[in-house]
Design a protein around this nucleic acid. Sequence first.
DNA 1: CCAAAAGTGTTGTGGCTACACCCATGG
DNA 2: CCATGGGTGTAGCCACAACACTTTTGG
Lengths: 221, 221
Amino acid sequence: MLGAVLQARDGDLRVLLWQRAQQPHLHRWALPGGRLAATEDVETSIRRQLAEKVDVHKLSHVEQISVFSAPDRFPGRRVVATAFLGLVPSDIDPEVPADTRWHPVADLPDTAFDHGEIALTARDRLRAKLSYTNIGFALAPAEFTVSELRRIYSAALGYQVSATNLQRVLSRRGVLETTGRTVSAGPSGGRPPALFRFTNRDLEVTDPFAVLRPPSRGGQD
Amino acid sequence: MLGAVLQARDGDLRVLLWQRAQQPHLHRWALPGGRLAATEDVETSIRRQLAEKVDVHKLSHVEQISVFSAPDRFPGRRVVATAFLGLVPSDIDPEVPADTRWHPVADLPDTAFDHGEIALTARDRLRAKLSYTNIGFALAPAEFTVSELRRIYSAALGYQVSATNLQRVLSRRGVLETTGRTVSAGPSGGRPPALFRFTNRDLEVTDPFAVLRPPSRGGQD
DNA sequence: CCAAAAGTGTTGTGGCTACACCCATGG
DNA sequence: CCATGGGTGTAGCCACAACACTTTTGG
């Protein structure tokens, strides 16, 4: 039961890690997690673990990544871990314990066990879903300017995206809508930006990317 | 540990199910599977289970679907299942036990526990991957005509795909290649079809569907 | 020579990137 | 009035679906 909690922070995509104080893997950085209790399903459990151990209460999105089960992944005894991707909006700053840090996923420290690999898998899953779902809602505040959103997408994807096309793609898909309000311009002037929000804060697939799609007229399934 | 083994058979996408002979869920249809042994990882284990129990030795592709963990999914005690998608090429016909059948996924019988839901999840995963990967190799024989491939894709997707465009999309992506050989025409005449094969029999993503893709010139990550 | 099936040529379209251009503000 | 950042208009591209057309066989 491990959670790769990701957030767009300071221009990078970061993952929450804590530094181990005992053997094995003393001083290495690990993903937070814990054991499944008898009356929970796995998603409930990982949410509880993250709230209790690292004060992350407001995961805007949680999904399963995979089960990691190589017999030698944990020294001594057999440990099978179910790994999760969790996302935190960029305007939230949980009060994490002293041994815990947000590390850039692109520049991980020495990680315990296979936790580095898990973090990278979580990042890749997020990146893929940014393209074909509305999952950006889980990284962004409730309302934001297109510039802010651009910074978030750039951090998560690892390259600069154009604000112009970001707005256009998400609007065309009906993912983004304007609030009608604007916020005042920055200290160096410029036109005051409009505030936007995501129309839907549940995950939905917005680009079914079905090549070989069903015939346009005629029977479905 | 459960395997949803799918195959394109007789024009349908089918899943291998066996009929339970005891309580609970007497006479309902269940996915094959078993328990994880101490020295295996989960993929090795599901391959072993399927070979031992239903004589499926030649899974051309195996991947994890998800962990199913609702506390009440199994009556009595808590059972957490890791579910897999397994694929069998259409020219193989395993000698399955007497209590086992290939059921169309679109028309499932009464299933045990949540196994029906798992089979549908597996089908949806396969359908998505047919669009953006070369996963067709796992459903097709080593060599085949475009017509045969069309039948396989149509069965898996649940709607008719055009042979013309199927060949074109897969060729453009470099997924398909001709063997140079042809096979003789059918009883009703017609031009003898060419034999094709997949260029690669390992899973690869052929359409990265990255909207918001990185700038064409300039810095990557 | 005709029906049937395989395979190619070609047109139109939608969604995207790139970039030029216009808009609204602070100093 | 000009620098700065926000936002729109538009051209071009590319992968695809659709369908007309050509090719090659059996009878």
